[in-house]
């Protein structure tokens, strides 16, 4: 068993848990639940990107992408939270203000 196989298996495991977190994103009762789900997906994707870098043999490029993704994930959480804080309602997404 080479290290490539190990990385491939780890990536597959990460993909499965990403799918589990996506269930919460799709079915979360409130918007904030969805944000939590997206946050978890983002953290998993950060690690997944570095693993993909190993599988493609181009680690230095993918680490840059992973750093950018981690920062985007953080800014997304803060920004969307501020937006819904101003709207003062977290139920559903269909009603218009």
């Amino acid at each position: 068993m080479t290290m490539d196989t190990v990385f491939l298996l780890a990536s597959l495991g990460l993909l499965v848990s990403t799918a589990l977190a996506l269930i919460r994103v799709v079915g979360g009762p409130t918007v904030l639940d969805r944000i939590v789900g997206v946050n978890v997906v983002g953290a998993q994707t950060t690690v997944l990107l570095v693993l993909i870098g190993f599988l493609f043999g181009n680690i230095s490029m993918f680490v840059d992408i992973a750093i950018a993704y981690a920062m985007l994930n953080f800014i997304l959480a803060i920004g969307v939270t501020k937006f819904f804080l101003r709207r003062k309602s977290a139920r559903g997404g269909s009603e218009e203000t």
Partner: peptide, 19 residues
Amino acid sequence: AVLLFLGVFFFAIGAIGIL
């Protein structure tokens, strides 16, 4: 390999937890 699979395990725990 052990550290990596522990990490994947805790990610899975987090995903199951939010479900």
